[in-house]
Design a protein around this nucleic acid. Structure first.
Lengths: 297, 297
DNA sequence: CATTTTTTATAATATCTACTTATGAATGGA
DNA sequence: TCCATTCATAAGTAGATATTATAAAAAATG
């Protein structure tokens, strides 16, 4: 069996409505932009399908039967529901509605994304955004499973079916309180880290891993005295004089600086972290497309 | 241009809903009673039509995109409206709903139809009946124009596209009050009508015309002193002693008799009136069909 | 009352749609 | 690595949906 139609053709319903309104097959055809025989055929098809006459044909006159009158409102509801469907789809396309779910590595989510999201909200006030922060691994996973449409994470590798663009170039810096002996320096030698109490993020965090591998390549070893799960905690501890911190540079940028923390580079070490925006090759959701563009503009 | 489709195919919407619910193309196909490629094609067609992805294909996994989630309720409404349409049509067919409009010559409407309509109401309590009374000519007109589906009228002639069955055989009778000299008779000679004050219906009414033509054929002439537009008025006048009435026999049948009116036949005159039930050859409205059967049973 | 005009229905036909089966490709588990 | 499962694609077919052309019937007109 093929070409079968389990329920009435909405085009026929539309024809039905139009003929009922216009009171004439010919005028309905005109109004619907089709030819008159097509209208006749649709009407007949609908009538045989429901097994009842919708119109009374007395010569050229067409009068709704009682059945026709009774079915008119139901037919109207169908057509209206269909129109609302396409309107909803168009509204999504025109960004008058919609949702995006984006994931971002915690550091980005806290220190960088807010300003973009604010801008996006200004451009498309009706679109709902859900921001999920977490580890790059977890977010990458969620992206692959289609539960996120965009993700700002550190590149693990190329992801099949996805594209990426560089979003943010970060580096790790050493932070010290203003009264610290290093406070006036621009940079210090990595070896000096062994002489001070170190405050870093917990071993699981990417921040820590970047640091660890860099120091390892340099043949150095450090003994942190504090592990934190939060850059803000690190900053506080450093300000209190508990030690020297190592954090992403974004957390001491002008607008997020706390107190008079000083930031220094580690001489000769490459501590850069690259954050990429990942997105499916065909992301298909106009709202996600728009957010992507905002993020990359 | 042909085969065009101005708005989405509801079958595709149904597929969309089912895939979203089942979470799998294959299972949706099974549940919809079609093969898997058909489902895939419907989904793709819908997606290209609205220009957005509804599902995220990560390998074999299918996850609703945000767009898909947003459009799900609208799609559901369309399918539901369609189902309600067919249900409404079926309800009409099963006589669980519906309307009939029947016309009947005044005499029939007042004295005969009520008991049939009561019976019909008992059989099909949900069906609304509208009874229109009036002259046979007017009702025939309305029937031809499709504004009535059934009509109990006196036969004018054969109506093209309509059928008829004898519904009621009536005759005109003379009525007199119980104290009248004729009260004990079964019938009287037509000539005697000239000797008494006559009360008849107005010249426009069929009752009058039947009488007139019968008397004319018999070469008689009468001079009514009262014209009424209502058999009840005639009966009252006769009872009060105002004269002798000529009415349809139905109006003095046992259950509609007022007082002790006596009815007499006119000897040698054929004063029968035949009331026919007229209906379109294909009346297409199950409710009308049912009422027709009740009337003829 | 015959003729013309208007309007709907039918016929023949072409294209597009909506299925089918057969097959390929990719994923996930053993 | 192989196998099973699942979705996508290809090719083919019956049916649906439109078209144009034409007939038939009813109203309008002279």
């Amino acid at each position: 069996m093929n070409g079968r139609r389990p329920f009435p053709n909405p085009q026929a319903l539309r024809v039905f409505l139009c003929v009922a309104q216009e009171g004439s097959v010919g005028r309905a055809a005109l109004s619907l932009g089709m030819t008159q025989p097509g209208v006749s055929q649709h009407l007949q098809a609908l009538e045989t399908q429901i097994g009842q006459a919708l119109f009374h044909r007395q010569g050229r006159r067409l009068v709704l039967t009682k059945t026709g009158q009774d079915l008119l409102p139901q037919a109207r509801r169908v057509v209206q529901a269909l129109e609302e469907f396409v309107q909803a789809a168009q509204a999504l396309e025109r960004l008058e509605r919609g949702r995006v779910e984006i994931g971002a590595a915690t550091t980005m989510a806290v220190y960088v994304l807010p300003r973009y999201l604010t801008e996006f909200k200004r451009l498309y006030p009706e679109i709902r955004i859900k921001l999920e922060s977490g580890s790059s691994e977890r977010l990458t996973q969620r992206l692959l499973q289609g539960e996120l449409e965009l993700a700002v994470v550190e590149a693990v590798e190329h992801l099949e079916g996805f594209e990426r663009q560089l979003f943010y170039e970060d580096e790790l810096v050493v932070i010290v309180p203003p009264e610290h002996p290093w406070a006036r320096k621009e940079e210090i030698a990595p070896e000096q880290l062994a002489e001070v109490p170190l405050i870093v993020r917990e071993p699981g965090a990417m921040t820590f891993r970047v640091l660890g591998s860099a120091l390892e390549q340099a043949g150095l070893e450090v003994n942190p005295i504090f592990y934190t799960d939060n850059h803000e905690v690190t900053k506080r501890l450093v300000l209190e004089g508990a030690g020297v911190g190592i954090v992403s540079s974004v957390v001491v940028r002008p607008n997020v600086r706390v107190g008079n923390l000083r930031a220094l580079r580690l001489k000769g070490l490459e501590l850069r972290r690259l954050f990429w925006l990942f997105y499916p090759k065909e992301l298909g959701n106009p709202a996600a497309e728009a957010l992507k563009n905002t993020l990359l503009s």
